[in-house]
Simulated scan of single mutants.
Amino acid sequence: MRFKRYCKTLLLENNPDLIEAYKNVHSPGNTWPEIAQGMKEVGILDMEIYIHENRLFMIMDTVADFDHDRAMNELAGKPRQSEWEAFVSRFQVTSKEASANEKWVLMERIYELDPSAEYKAIDGQQKQTK
């Protein structure tokens, strides 16, 4: 199966209490089901978020024909998405009005153990399950 992978980053407020609260908001059973449903509807197959201190790192796997900008614009209009973004903005170094696309910055790959091709971050890295 072919898919695209995007990697993104975001900073949280450097406050241990807010960081713990953010982690709790994202723990199993605490995320809003409408948010996950909206991501699936725009073509996001899987998403993982990792944390180190106040830096977040996201891995987002999508369908092979995923158009990042189009999907992020569509996602912004999904039910409760703007409410979710305003809710989590208190933890993030961002504004309440910012969309997920404005908060999460695409990262450029600079190394891969077994490189297959160059790609632009906005186009996603073509991947294939083995």
Rank of each mutant, 00 (worst) to 15 (best):
S99G: 07
Q37C: 02
I35F: 03
I122E: 10
I44T: 06
M72V: 08
D123Y: 00
G124M: 03
D123L: 01
H26C: 05
K40P: 02
N14R: 14
W84M: 13
Y22E: 09
V25C: 04
H26A: 01
Q125R: 09
E102S: 06
Q125I: 00
S89M: 06
G38V: 03
I44M: 12
K23C: 11
A100V: 12
S116T: 04
I49W: 12
I35G: 02
V88W: 13
K4V: 04
A71M: 07
E97H: 07
L56N: 07
Y6V: 09
R55C: 05
V42Q: 05
K23R: 15
Y6D: 01
M58Q: 13
I44D: 03
T31N: 09
R109D: 05
D17M: 07
D114P: 00
E102P: 02
P28G: 04
Q126E: 12
L106N: 13
L75C: 07
P16F: 04
N101S: 15
K130L: 10
K4Y: 02
V25A: 08
W104N: 14
M58D: 11
K96M: 10
K40D: 06
E41A: 09
M72T: 14
E74W: 00
L56V: 11
D46A: 10
L45Q: 05
K23P: 02
E53W: 02
V42S: 05
A117P: 00
P28F: 09
N54S: 07
G29T: 02
M107T: 12
I44R: 08
C7Q: 14
P33I: 03
G29W: 04
H26M: 02
E53R: 13
G77Y: 09
F57D: 05
D123N: 08
M47S: 10
A86R: 14
E97D: 12
M72P: 08
